[in-house]
């Protein structure tokens, strides 16, 4: 179960790393729980990343390769590091 303290500590720890441009924590339903970005950007990232994670989970389930733990989206300008848990998704923009 995630708490406010855990969210605060996690965001502080992640943003202290060099190159980290933002951190978003969202529920499995795509509702943002906490973020260091603007509300518009947070809403967009949470919605689309939840959609990717959902699709990735379905693929992994079909292939029978276990449980989805981590996902990386490497684009030309930014990199998205996505850690997926049962109840929440942790997203780091680098």
């Amino acid at each position: 179960m995630i708490s406010q303290k855990w969210i605060k500590d996690t965001i502080e720890r992640l943003t202290s790393h060099e190159g980290v441009k933002g951190v978003v924590i969202t529920s499995a339903e795509g509702i943002p729980l906490s973020s260091t970005l603007s509300s518009d950007e947070t809403e967009k990232i949470a919605a689309f990343v939840t959609s990717i994670v959902d699709k990735a989970r379905k693929i992994i389930n079909e292939l029978g390769t276990g449980k989805l733990n981590f996902l990386t989206v490497d684009a030309s300008k930014k990199e998205l590091l996505i850690a997926s848990e049962k109840d929440y998704i942790l997203i780091v923009l680098r």
């Binding site: 339903e29 795509g30 939840t50 959609s51």
Partner: peptide, 9 residues
């Protein structure tokens, strides 16, 4: 079980 965030957006 819809993605609420996506529906809102």
């Amino acid at each position: 079980d819809v993605n609420i965030g996506m529906v809102r957006l």
